[in-house]
Write a protein that binds this DNA or RNA. Structure first.
Length: 562
RNA sequence: GCGCCUGUAGCUCAAUAGGAUAGAGCAACGGACUUCUAAUCCGUAGGCUGGGGGUUCGACUCCCUCCAGGCGCGCCA
């Protein structure tokens, strides 16, 4: 029996009638396809639709409409009070039309669940480790990292809302050669500031932030390191630079509203001796061989295009080795699913990590990588260059200063993460028209304004007496559209969690805001008619809650006034 | 050369696990403020979904092939 706007009951009934059909026809198949209920684009196709009969007809080679007829007959037996109409359309779609009363119940649900409306438990408490950003602490975050941060942070919120137990983590690559290069770069800048004539190392980090760090050391420690270049001095500059840069990264992320549950140091894998045992284990299981003095992992056994070095001829562990150990460690901490968010330039790295994970005995599919495509900044119609090589890039901090957190987040989240983002600074800064963030926030502010007006006119919703509101007064076309959209929210959250697509929430927000703006123009909420005003207030209060919830899944504020 | 991603309206992007008539915003044109914020709304116009084959009841979506763009192919991290 269908209950409220939850579709699980309906799916169950459909499943049963499918079995009934197969039984009567004496057909046996391995498994019936999952029942999928979609919301049709066209209103004439009902509130909900399923293509199960079409799918089945392919499998059992019977006429789809005939199957649909059987299913509908079964469904009608038990769902009379729920549906106005169940009909078969086109080649064999089954379309459901809710009774209007049922549409209204979503308002009670929203009011009761408030900021938990849209939450579900499809994740069943499964433990997921979500790792993202993980930028090397050798320089500031730039705009592209901002996109990864926005996607990761939002995804973690969405997954939590869908009932997963999510931990977020930033992996600090503080082990390899690059840290020495960093220390050396700052040291040279420091000595140059003191007037020494020194060549800047060819592979050094050239950005202005390196000079700024050198100046900082000079301010704090004076000429203490003048002319010195011993291992102790390098060590100092290395750790100083690393700590400061990491601190800046944390600050930038905090400005962006992003916080991690855990900061995981690569170095700790070595100090806790976790790297070599994993390599040994793979070796014992025959996945490692020796060639030209180096140890190679046989990733080709698992579909990678070539084998990969884990231990170099000089005995040092390659980056890949610590990464294997790191991912092994994630599983050992009890996570069932690992999601890594990487810049798309790392895509060549996926198959070797998957290979290692498989070799270690974990399921290949339990490790998922989301590749985030590049961001292009556009100003006045022209692309802004972002080469890191010359140290010329727009930092996340600069972007936040220019357009603010909410706009930056929305722009990163409004499109699919695996399509290139074109970030138009002129649109982002514009306070009107084309800026979708303001469009959405404006809808929210308008609702707040109406509610306030209602209060001054002595029309307000109090917690008691909501049952007395005459919901049947909400019979306008625009109102029914909004109700259907509200009902959809839970499904959108689930889908965006399962498919790891935060941008679905962004799209939903825009649609809901649009429906509201339309409604606002067509109908007045606060009128002389008190009953009607109350009913409409109840509706827009629900819209307000859902806007709030959706915005919070994206990490965007909902301003009461604009 | 091999591999991954992308190609949809003039521009930026959608299209819910292969579903019904491919939709939004911007830009263009024409309308709507004595009204709860016009940062809004309504209308018009705009398409051989990069090209060509295939799979099936049905393809923007899957397969093959070609074209264009991005990225990657270290005993770097």
């Amino acid at each position: 029996m269908l209950n409220k706007t939850d579709h699980e009951g309906l799916k169950q009934t459909i499943t049963e009638s499918v079995y009934q059909y197969l039984k009567e026809k004496g057909i046996e198949i391995d498994a019936i396809p999952a029942i999928i209920l979609t919301t049709p684009k066209e209103r004439v196709h009902g509130h909900l639709s399923t293509n199960i009969a079409l799918q089945l007809s392919g499998m059992v080679s019977n006429n789809a409409r005939e199957i649909a007829q059987f299913i509908v007959k079964e469904l009608k037996k038990s769902n009379e009070e729920v549906f106005d109409k169940i009909e078969i359309a086109g080649p064999g779609f089954i379309n459901f039309y809710f009774k209007k009363d049922l549409l209204y119940t979503v308002l009670h649900e929203i009011t009761a669940e408030k900021n938990k409306f849209g939450y579900s438990d499809i994740g069943k408490g499964e433990k997921i480790l979500l790792e993202y950003v993980s930028v090397n602490p050798t320089g500031p975050l730039h705009v592209g990292h901002g996109k990864c941060a926005a996607v990761g942070d939002s995804l973690s919120k969405i997954l939590k809302a869908a009932g997963y137990r999510v931990s977020t983590e930033y992996y600090i690559n503080d082990h390899g050669k690059q840290m020495d290069v960093l220390g050396q770069s700052v040291l040279v800048r420091y000595r140059q500031l003191l007037g020494e004539m020194l060549e800047f190392p060819e592979n050094g980090y050239q950005g202005d932030y390196i000079i700024a760090l050198a100046r900082e050391v000079l301010d704090k420690y004076g000429i203490e390191f003048k002319g010195k270049d011993d291992s102790e001095t390098i060590q100092f500059f290395k750790s100083y630079a690393q700590q400061r840069i990491l601190q800046d990264i944390k600050e930038d992320l905090a400005l962006f509203g992003v916080e991690f549950d855990n900061w995981f140091s690569e170095e700790s894998l070595f100090t806790q001796n976790k790297v070599y045992p994993v390599v040994d284990r793979l070796r014992q299981e025959g996945f490692i061989y020796l060639d030209k003095g180096a140890l190679w992992f046989k990733s080709t056994d698992f579909g990678d295009e070539k084998d990969r070095v884990v231990t170099r001829a000089n005995g040092e562990a390659a980056y890949f080795a610590s990464d294997i150990a790191y991912h092994d460690d994630k599983y050992k901490r009890g996570f069932k699913t690992l999601i890594d968010i990487w810049g798309s330039d790392h895509h060549g790295y996926i198959s070797r990590v998957k290979a290692a994970i498989q070799a270690l005995g974990y399921s290949r599919d339990s490790f998922q990588v989301l590749l985030v495509q590049f961001v292009t900044l556009v100003r006045a119609g022209k692309t802004i260059g972002m080469s890191t090589r010359g140290g010329q890039f727009v930092t996340l901090k600069d972007l936040l200063k220019e357009v603010g957190k909410d706009v930056a987040r929305y722009f990163f989240l409004m499109h699919s993460h695996d399509s290139h983002t074109e970030f138009d600074l002129d649109i982002a800064k514009s306070q009107s028209l084309e800026n979708p963030v303001f469009y959405i926030q404006y809808a929210y502010a308008r609702i707040c304004s109406i509610i306030k007006k209602g209060e001054t006119n002595n029309i307000a919703l109090n917690d008691t007496g909501k049952e007395q509101i005459d919901l049947k007064l909400l019979d306008k076309k625009e109102e029914l559209e909004i109700l259907k959209k509200l009902i959809n929210f839970k499904k959108i959250v689930e889908r965006s969690a399962i498919q790891r697509k935060p941008y679905l929430i962004a799209g939903y927000l825009h649609e809901l805001a649009s429906l509201f703006h339309k409604y606002y123009t067509e109908h007045k909420v606060i009128t002389r008619d008190k009953k009607l005003s109350e009913a409409r207030l109840y509706l827009i209060s629900s819209v307000k809650i859902v806007l709030e919830n959706a915005l919070s899944l994206l990490g965007i504020d909902a301003p009461e006034k604009m």
